[in-house]
Amino acid sequence: MTETPTPAVNQVWADNDKRGYGRRVRIVEVNGTHAVVEQVIGRDHAPAQPGRRTRIRLDRFRPISTGYRYVGEAER
């Protein structure tokens, strides 16, 4: 089993919540207890709205039903 890395800038994570199926986010900043992310792919694999940012608690970056799973590093 692969170990989940510590959330860091330029990583891509997928939303495990069934309401956000297909959503992927890229971490752009990490501050204390939260990460600032931009959507890479929206829900149901729809194109993401460019520039929209959201804050997510760091403890949600783990592969549970309402968390996020690590996908890989973002392409540059």
Rank of each mutant, 00 (worst) to 15 (best):
M1Y: 11
M1E: 04
M1D: 08
T2K: 11
T2L: 13
E3P: 02
T4W: 01
T4A: 13
P5G: 11
P5E: 11
T6R: 07
T6A: 14
T6D: 11
P7H: 10
A8V: 04
A8W: 03
A8M: 07
V9A: 03
N10Q: 12
Q11D: 10
Q11I: 09
Q11M: 15
V12I: 15
V12M: 04
V12F: 06
W13V: 10
W13N: 08
W13I: 10
D15S: 15
N16F: 07
D17N: 15
K18C: 05
R19G: 11
G20K: 11
G20H: 14
G22A: 12
G22R: 07
R23K: 14
R23W: 03
R23Q: 14
R24S: 04
I27Q: 10
V28M: 06
E29N: 13
V30E: 08
V30K: 10
G32Q: 14
G32I: 00
G32A: 11
T33C: 03
H34Q: 07
A35C: 01
A35V: 04
V37W: 03
E38D: 09
E38T: 12
E38S: 08
G42H: 04
R43M: 04
H45F: 15
H45C: 04
H45Q: 07
H45S: 09
H45W: 15
A48R: 01
A48L: 02
Q49R: 12
Q49W: 05
Q49F: 04
Q49H: 08
P50H: 12
G51W: 12
R53A: 01
T54P: 00
R55T: 13
R55A: 07
I56N: 00
I56D: 02
I56C: 00
R57Y: 06
R57M: 01
R57K: 08
R57P: 03
L58K: 02
L58N: 01
R60P: 00
R60W: 06
F61R: 00
F61S: 03
F61D: 08
R62Q: 15
I64D: 07
S65P: 00
T66P: 00
G67H: 05
Y68K: 02
R69E: 11
Y70G: 06
Y70D: 05
Y70L: 03
V71E: 15
V71D: 09
G72S: 12
G72D: 10
G72R: 06
G72Q: 13
G72L: 14
E73A: 13
E75V: 13
R76D: 13
